[in-house]
Design a protein around this nucleic acid. Structure first.
Lengths: 164, 164
DNA sequence: CTAAGTGCAAAGTATTTGCTTAGGA
DNA sequence: TCCTAAGCAAATACTTTGCACTTAG
């Protein structure tokens, strides 16, 4: 069970639900719970992690359902999938504005970094110079977080390499 | 069969071979051929594509061997793996200096964009501000290339989304 | 009522691993 | 000769799909 007293979270869940309904999608209890999870977590959880939590309230829920709903939300642009090669993808249901990721290679923490003007400018320059039409960009910065530097390990979502 | 007359390519192949030998690795004909392929291609091929080409000269070669050798070369830092979620990873054996990628969403073309000073500066700022130790960064810019804009489709390595 | 979603199991991809044989140094 | 690499097959990990049953609207 997740506490969803925060009015801000409640509001965003409502909005997401509305958007799904507009699309002709049904708002099942499972989906609602998934929306709440996505919106109230700020750790970029994996599908598996979302599934584990959902499972507490819906013991019969399957991972497939989680993936299916995430697929819908990705299409509507309401969640962002952050894939790392073979490692399980991480999902962000909070931050829709363009941003970079700061990622700890050891514990897998992902922090959203609001985009800076230079980066957008860079993308625009690069694409126009090459005759491309710009769609999107992705910026990941890999490092070691303060905790892991000190050895206070709280291993959770280890990411080995940048490419894979 | 690949033409490897280019002295520049030849030199880089030699260098890579030398580095492998230094590491106590053996320079088998298969590996040599793979090195040549990697160095002489500028299209960021997939493991599968490398395998297909290798196969022309070594009909018994297996994909596993390609992956194994690529793994070694990744470790030595001589090739860069560029993973895109579930899509097959692409490998770059030419450009080792830090760079961004300009990627066509339709045909999968990947162009290396030499890094600009602002980007490195951005990463440095972000990490130090968060107490992280910087390891590396990855910058992918997604768009539609001029050919695909015009419908001159030569589909090869389609990449659907940025995240996955 | 009925199209969409659930949940199970099975299939799919991309990559890795184990193990036996071959061959480079 | 010795020990790493090749090559095959099987395993793995994440994600998607097919289908019969359920349910929100």
């Amino acid at each position: 069970m997740i506490a969803t007293q925060d009015p801000k979270i409640h509001k965003r869940v409502e909005a997401l639900g509305e958007r799904l309904r507009e699309r002709g999608c049904r708002l099942t209890p499972q989906r609602l719970a998934l929306l709440r999870l996505l919106v109230s977590s700020n750790t970029h959880p994996t599908a598996e992690q979302l599934y584990q939590q959902l499972h507490e309230d819906f013991p019969t829920t399957s991972l497939a359902t989680v993936y299916k709903t995430l697929a819908v939300l990705k299409e509507t642009g309401d969640v962002l999938e952050v894939g790392f090669g073979n490692h399980p993808s991480r999902f962000d249901g909070n931050n829709l504005s363009p941003h970079a990721h700061l990622i700890c290679r050891d514990c897998g923490e992902i922090i959203d970094i609001m985009e800076n003007r230079n980066l957008s400018e860079f993308s625009r320059q690069v694409t126009s110079r090459s005759g491309y039409r710009l769609i999107s960009q992705r910026i990941d910065i890999f490092g070691i977080c303060p905790h892991c530097k000190n050895g206070d390990k709280k291993p959770s979502n280890t990411i080995i390499n940048q490419g894979e």
